[in-house]
């Protein structure tokens, strides 16, 4: 249960009505954690059922340091087994460990914790996120990440997100710092089923304090059943700033808010406009505010940030600047905001 977690793991707004996990029936396949199963033994196609369900508040364990081992951090949120039961959350640990923070009948919050010093040259972080139809997941980073000087060896960070129909994911990422000498490829791939909603914050910083920073390729690929929604590959190198790309800005801070196409058809695929993300279902927590399908975004009250309305609906809000604390963007780990 949440109380068992160190304070640092508590969300800003813990769910007040979280059911008492002790009152929940044990999942039949709930193996004893904290020992993560050996994922290398798993087949390529991940079968979430093969993973044990995580008991709430399982203690953080030190993951053995094994650079170059592409162990997968998995988080899967599944529908409750019965009426009144909470969603089932299955996790496994890779270079990042996944810790369940809270859950109720439709939502879960999971924190990602670095298992050791990362990222070093040769490291490959893989995060796999699955959210079942109608369920919602909030992912939080417990600390920022630094990609260190890899001494000529590159490192990778890949997130693969699959959202079922009507599922939601809010991932409030903390800064990802590219130290001088680091060479990183960081990708986020998301596939959204009908009406799924994805809200991501990604903050990349070139260089620690006093550094100009290393090299990063940042790829985002979001698609639904109709086709691509956002495909972007940014390449930046701290020692070679390019005007028009990032200029001399050290921080690129992005909040992406997109949805899978509604069930009643995708609108006009070839024309401008398309379905808008603000169809009244976003709820009061929708950060991008109201706006009709063809209405321009209200002048965003985000100093220096730009909100881009994507062709197929949804928004990408971005700020370029010198330091993360100056960014006007905010995607607090607001538990529950991903849900309907």
């Amino acid at each position: 249960m949440p109380d068992a977690l160190p304070d640092a793991l508590m969300p800003d707004a813990p769910m007040p009505d979280a059911p008492d996990p002790d009152a929940l029936p044990d999942a039949p396949d709930s193996n004893a954690l904290p020992e993560a199963p050996d994922l290398d033994a798993l087949p390529d196609a991940p079968d979430p059922d093969a993973l044990p369900e995580v008991p709430d508040g399982s203690p953080t364990t030190a993951v053995p340091r094994a650079p170059s081992t592409p162990r997968v951090t998995r988080v899967a949120v599944e529908r409750p087994t019965g009426f009144g039961a909470p969603v089932r959350v299955r996790t496994s640990d890779g270079l990042l460990a996944a810790r369940l923070v809270a859950r109720d009948g439709t939502r879960a919050e999971v924190a990602l914790v670095a298992g050791g010093a990362m990222l070093l040259g040769g490291d490959h972080v893989i995060v796999s996120v699955r959210v079942d139809p109608g369920c919602a997941l909030t992912l939080t980073d417990v600390g920022g990440t630094v990609a260190y000087d890899g001494d000529g060896k590159a490192c990778r960070w890949d997130a693969d997100i699959r959202l079922g129909p009507g599922a939601g994911l809010t991932w409030a990422g903390l800064p990802f710092v590219v130290a001088s000498g680091a060479d990183v490829r960081r990708t986020t791939t998301a596939r959204l089923a009908t009406d799924a909603r994805l809200t991501l914050r990604e903050t990349v910083v070139l260089g620690r304090s006093g550094e100009c920073g290393g090299r990063i390729t940042l790829r985002t690929d979001v698609a639904d059943d109709v086709g691509p929604i956002l495909v972007e590959e940014l390449t930046a190198a701290g020692d070679h700033p390019v005007p028009g790309v990032l200029g001399d800005h050290a921080v690129i801070d992005t909040v992406t808010d997109v949805r899978g196409s509604p069930p009643d058809g995708p609108g006009d695929p070839g024309g401008p406009g398309g379905p808008d993300s603000s169809d009244g279902r976003g709820g009061p927590d929708s950060f991008d505010g109201p706006g009709g399908p063809d209405r321009p975004a209200p002048a965003p009250d985000l100093d220096g940030a730009v909100t881009l309305r994507l062709d197929r609906g949804g928004t990408l809000t971005r700020w370029l600047g010198p330091a993360t604390h100056l960014s006007p963007l905010d995607l607090a780990p607001d538990f529950g905001s991903a849900g309907q």
Partner: peptide
């Protein structure tokens, strides 16, 4: 088909002002 090519281009052109100018 052609609509897929247009969609791929639009997904790679996030700024509405640039999509409008290109159209």
């Amino acid at each position: 088909d052609l609509a897929d090519v247009v969609r791929a281009w639009a997904a790679r052109t996030p700024a509405p002002a640039l999509r409008d100018a290109a159209r």
